[in-house]
Design a protein around this nucleic acid. Structure first.
Lengths: 212, 212
DNA sequence: AAAATAAATAACTGACCAGTCATTAAATAG
DNA sequence: CTATTTAATGACTGGTCAGTTATTTATTTT
């Protein structure tokens, strides 16, 4: 029997562990929430024992932080890229940006983040704070800048740009929360395919000057 | 020393206990979420020992159910009353109804409910199910009926009434979630005073025919 | 091939908490 | 005033789980 075939109890994989543990942690957190997720299950899912987790992370909370820090930032930066194109009229920019957000929230991973933050933000304020600062504030900032430009150029009515940005984003974020909370029960459903474009249309029309 | 002055260890108050316990439970659930709320703290807050709780409720979950069942129904019925007035044009009805929702969500109690459901709905599906059936579905049903009437009367564009109802409600519910999750951290804030009326205005304008 | 190193394990600890139950004492009936 | 009932207590149980640590074993070095 060769060495390769011989069953080994475990292997040293120093480099791969942290990422694998974070993947496992994300899955468990999404499934059960932060408080109820068991470190033992996270370890098992990563094919490792509980003690090993503590070789790479100081605590459960630190794992959570690492996840919130890492994952949703790229998408926000991509939204900024869309906003940069000053040759596009503001109402089209707005449509594109909100469509983009609706798009990446269709990805399970992204959709489950808001719910996780809302769930455990109460007892672990750092998480909510980080998410607000790194994700929401940036996104809102970019959106409201575009709305402000539209007002200056006389295309939009003179609304409060910050509050309008929230109003544009809220239904889309709400879709993600809905999916992860109420979709599985019978009764009325949000159909993101219809809901998101229709909302964007209504929202942008409602913002335009010359509306009734 | 009279009987009245004599310090008594406790009093029998069979009738008052359940309501007092539910009040205490609501406060603890709002503060810590369902899973993290301690029965001992709920009991203490109601001025009673833990054992007493089990004289009136079979389990922690049953307390939660009782709360979700009881509290937010009245408001939904009040919204139905507004919708009933067929002499008012649909766009005004819509404004009134959404303003009403924005109003009662300013009450702390109401604002904290959605967050509680979202937080613990995952592990206690019954709660989310009850809330969807008893509160959300009813509210959405009433709203979408008014929107449908508006479309039939030729006042609104031919949108999907159900999805539009969600779109009208979502930002207002989102306000409540925001308040209980992100308001305490520095950075951009939703100002409900501006946000809600502005959203309602944009939403209804966006729905009207003759928009650009 | 033996010694050294460090990755990984698994048994353990200490704290926590939902739910139980034998006991106590307030209220009521006889 | 005494006996009975029952509201309320509080110590206890059984189970869970984050974090620790002594030990084992894979890998690297010499």
């Amino acid at each position: 029997m060769s060495n390769l075939e011989r069953s080994q109890r475990w292997q040293r994989r120093k480099d791969a562990r942290p990422a694998e543990l974070l993947d496992a942690a994300l899955a468990e957190f999404f499934e059960k929430g932060f408080a109820a997720a068991r470190l033992e299950d996270i370890a098992a899912r990563a094919g490792v024992s509980k003690g090993t987790v503590y070789l790479y992370f100081d605590s459960k909370e630190e794992m959570f932080e690492a996840l919130v820090q890492a994952i949703p930032k790229a998408n926000v930066e991509q939204m900024r890229a869309i906003a940069m194109d000053a040759t596009v009229p503001p109402e089209d920019l707005l449509r594109r940006m909100l469509t983009f957000v609706g798009g990446f929230l269709r990805d399970e991973r992204m959709a489950k983040f808001p719910r996780l933050i809302i769930s455990d933000g109460g007892r672990f304020p750092k998480l909510a704070e980080t998410y607000k600062r790194e994700v929401i504030s940036r996104g809102i900032g970019i959106l409201s800048a575009v709305i402000e430009r539209g007002i200056k150029e006389g295309v939009f009515r003179a609304v409060d740009p910050l509050q309008a940005a929230f109003a544009g984003l809220a239904p889309i974020l709400f879709t993600a929360i809905w999916r992860t909370t109420f979709e599985r029960f019978e009764g009325e459903q949000i159909d993101a395919e219809i809901f998101v474009p229709q909302h964007i249309d209504t929202f942008v029309r409602g913002l335009l000057k010359g509306a009734p």
